[in-house]
């Protein structure tokens, strides 16, 4: 047998994975458990064994966190904790002992400063040297582009990126993106932007008439029909506070 590269026992490639951020505002496992129960409404597969990054930037460094209990708790809700983000220097040893990785990307600025001061922690906080960890902020994934009509019953998901569709989206179809959604043809059906929680995502369309839109989990249905003054014309949909806002993109001068 020839030794093609694929016959190597291991190959190293950079890949980007999508993880859910579990942002803690409390270190009390009972309070977290209660909040998760309420959030998932008791649906056991609300999360589908997704990766989770525990964000503790909002927790005081001195607070005691029982990492084992926290990981088990998330596991109970089918969230796999893989890393901790925004950890204070006092937490690092306990996090490492639990086998969790440290993500010093967004929200970890505080930790990084502390690391510079406390040289003892440097070896822990630095990512394993040669392989640079791709960071969502710096490496943009190319948008997913769809050129064929999205029909009833079909579902398109642009994981970790924007979704651009140049053909019609019909009623009964579902288009989902972790970034923003752009549709250059009549858009019906359901459109869900910012599916992993990015509230800055938007939906843009040349002729919008969706059944449902959602941004970062905040949704709006159109039981009474899509606002007539905005339907079938260029418009954008974004999240303003906790409200879905629809606004025209037609230049004011050309409005009739």
């Amino acid at each position: 047998m020839s030794k093609s590269p694929s016959s190597l026992p291991i190959e190293i490639k950079i890949s980007t994975v999508v993880a859910i951020s579990a942002i803690l505002h409390s270190s009390d496992p009972i309070a977290i458990d209660a909040a998760l129960t309420q959030m998932t409404g008791g649906v056991s597969d609300f999360f589908e064994d997704e990766f989770a990054v525990i964000d503790v930037a909002a927790i005081a460094d001195s607070a005691y966190i029982d990492w084992r209990a926290l990981v088990d708790l998330l596991k109970k809700y089918r969230l796999n904790a893989v890393a901790v983000r925004g950890a204070g220097p006092g937490m690092l040893a306990a996090i490492k002992a639990r086998g969790l990785a440290l993500d010093d990307g967004a929200g970890a600025d505080r930790a990084r400063e502390d690391v510079a001061a406390a040289s003892a922690a440097v070896t822990i906080a630095q990512p394993p040297a040669p392989a640079p960890q791709p960071q969502p902020q710096s490496v943009a994934l190319p948008a997913m582009i769809v050129d064929t009509p999205v029909r009833a019953g079909q579902r398109v998901y642009a994981r970790g990126c924007d979704l651009i569709i140049t053909a019609a989206v019909n009623n009964g179809a579902e288009i989902i993106a972790d970034g923003s959604i752009h549709v250059y043809a009549p858009m019906h059906g359901r459109a869900l932007a910012g599916a992993s929680g990015n509230a800055d995502s938007r939906i843009f369309g040349l002729a919008l008439q969706p059944e449902l839109v959602s941004i970062a989990g905040v949704y709006r249905t159109f039981d009474e029909g899509f606002p007539a003054e905005l339907a079938r014309q260029p418009a954008q949909i974004r999240l303003v506070g906790d409200r879905i806002d629809i606004s025209s993109l037609t230049p004011a001068s050309s409005r009739t």
Partner: peptide
């Protein structure tokens, strides 16, 4: 029409 749309998607897949 909706069901035809659905079956078109199935043919394409």
């Amino acid at each position: 029409v909706r069901d035809s749309d659905r079956i078109l998607g199935i043919i394409q897949a």
